[in-house]
């Protein structure tokens, strides 16, 4: 009687045994991969360690922070968060978060709208002086930020905008961020004009073409603009420091420094806890936007 095991194992029989050279190459590949990944993990860990330490330290006691460089807290505590949230001012940290939003939200919306409009103009229309205006736009990109600080300050003082949020977001409403305009223009240049022409033939006017056709196609670019603007504004320290003087209007970035100034013995764990909290909005927005950025519509309507 023939059993199953008597049958020759076809797959094994057909497989030729590896030659010594193949074995050698395989082994070398494995060693290479091991070395490569070990190195990457090590360097990656070194790079991310300060961040890990920050998060860990937020859960440490004040005394432990300086006694060990290791990031994992020995006795995790939420004291830092509790104290940091209350702050030494009459306002809790939620108030400062809200203040940040008063700057960030109008600024992001204004940037998205104004940059799209200006970029659309530059990328799609011919008008007298276009070349010169575009050169000026690019030139402002190369201008160091600090050289305009003083003239800007004087200007906003004349307007009576000091100690308000206006100087922080109004420039963005008029496409003050040349970098973003440039970014959207570059993206627009890569998009064939036929879709807009098709829309015009379909009877759309310039505004309708922009809103119904260009903006949806530009969405990935606009989302990146919003993303960058959100993070940069959230982290902006110098702007609010110059223009905002009353504590009740402080955004998060200044409020963090406030706790360093106000207390005699620094409550480092409170400061670090709030720093961790301050990171969260940017991280959340980044991950949300990243998803829609990747899912963003490709220009699938065009084959060429």
């Amino acid at each position: 009687m023939v059993t199953l095991s008597d049958l020759p194992d076809q797959s094994r029989a057909e497989r030729t045994p590896p030659t010594p050279l193949e074995l050698k190459l395989r082994r070398r590949n494995r060693i290479n991969a091991f070395v490569r990944y070990s190195l990457l993990i090590l360097v990656g860990f070194i790079m991310i360690y300060p961040l890990l330490w920050l998060v860990g330290a937020a859960f440490k006691t004040n005394s432990e922070i300086f006694s060990s460089a290791w990031f994992w807290p020995a006795r995790p505590t939420l004291d830092g968060f509790r104290e940091g949230w209350e702050t030494s001012t009459p306002y809790n940290f939620g108030h400062f978060f809200l203040n940040s939003m008063y700057i960030v939200i109008p600024k992001v919306i204004g940037t998205a709208i104004s940059c799209t409009l200006v970029a659309y103009g530059f990328a799609r229309f011919e008008f007298p002086g276009k070349k010169i205006l575009f050169s000026i736009l690019i030139a402002t990109l190369l201008l160091p930020d600090v050289v305009t600080r003083i003239p800007q300050y004087l200007l906003f003082r004349e307007l009576g905008w000091l100690d308000t949020y206006l100087p922080l977001f109004v420039p963005s409403w008029v496409a003050g961020d040349a970098f973003f305009v440039f970014m959207v223009i570059q993206f627009l240049r890569a998009i064939p004009r036929e879709m807009e022409e098709a829309a015009r033939v379909d009877g759309a006017n310039t505004a309708q073409t922009l809103i119904f056709i260009v903006v949806p196609i530009l969405m990935p670019a606009i989302i990146s603009v919003c993303l960058f603007q959100f993070m940069w504004t959230m982290n902006d320290f110098l702007g609010p420091l110059i223009y905002i003087s009353s504590v009740e209007k402080y955004p998060v970035s200044i409020a963090l420094k406030l706790s360093i100034d106000a207390t005699e013995a620094f409550n480092w764990n409170a400061i670090l806890s709030m720093t961790v909290l301050a990171l969260i909005p940017s991280l959340v927005v980044f991950f949300l936007a990243q998803k829609s950025f990747i899912e963003g519509i490709s220009t699938g309507g065009v084959k060429g």
Binding site: E194, A198, V201, D202, A204, P216, T299, G301, V302
Partner: peptide, 28 residues
């Protein structure tokens, strides 16, 4: 173009990538 009473078919189709076929047809 929209007032001339013409319709145009483009070489690379120029369909609106973010709209479904139904909306592409009915947009005009």
């Amino acid at each position: 173009p929209g007032k001339r009473g013409i319709a145009m078919v483009f070489q690379n189709y120029a369909l609106y990538p973010h709209m479904k076929v139904r909306r592409n047809l009915s947009f005009g």
